[in-house]
């Protein structure tokens, strides 16, 4: 399992416990996300703090993870490193997801 999950307040925090979300693990990631988000709070925050490399397959897997959420639930992203943020920016995925600089920031935005 590449992920760990906790619930804090009204958000589910899913932490990626891998340094890479790449083609070699994209399918596993998508399946793990499906398992973790089978039920839970309306808001899901994906903590990317540990991830130092993502490719287009990994990006596709995060999009897939968002699309497989039940209607009414949302996926926000927290703690992307500069490299990860760059990939989101270049593909304009930063316009699709809410990206927060840190998990704390993401949580603060939710309780505001």
């Amino acid at each position: 399992m590449s992920l760990t999950s906790t619930v804090q307040g009204d958000a589910q925090i899913i932490t990626v416990e891998a340094e890479r979300i790449d083609a070699a693990m994209a399918i596993q990631f998508k399946e793990d996300m499906r398992t973790e988000t089978a039920s839970g709070p309306k808001r899901v925050i994906l903590d990317l703090t540990r991830v130092d490399f993502i490719d287009s397959s990994g990006l596709g897997a995060i999009v897939a993870a968002m699309k497989q959420l039940d209607p009414g639930r949302r996926l926000d992203l927290a703690g992307p490193r500069p490299m990860v943020a760059k990939v989101f920016r270049l593909t304009r995925m930063d316009t699709v997801f809410d990206l927060y600089a840190s998990l704390d920031e993401a949580l603060a935005a939710g309780s505001a």
């Binding site: 287009s56 596709g60 968002m66 699309k67 593909t91 304009r92 699709v96």
Partner: peptide
């Protein structure tokens, strides 16, 4: 194809980003 930010989230492509990068 760059992502259309106005597209419905359910219709977003899950691939095709490689050549953009």
């Amino acid at each position: 194809h760059p992502v259309d930010p106005h597209a419905l989230k359910r219709t977003l492509p899950e691939g095709g980003f490689g050549w953009i990068l």
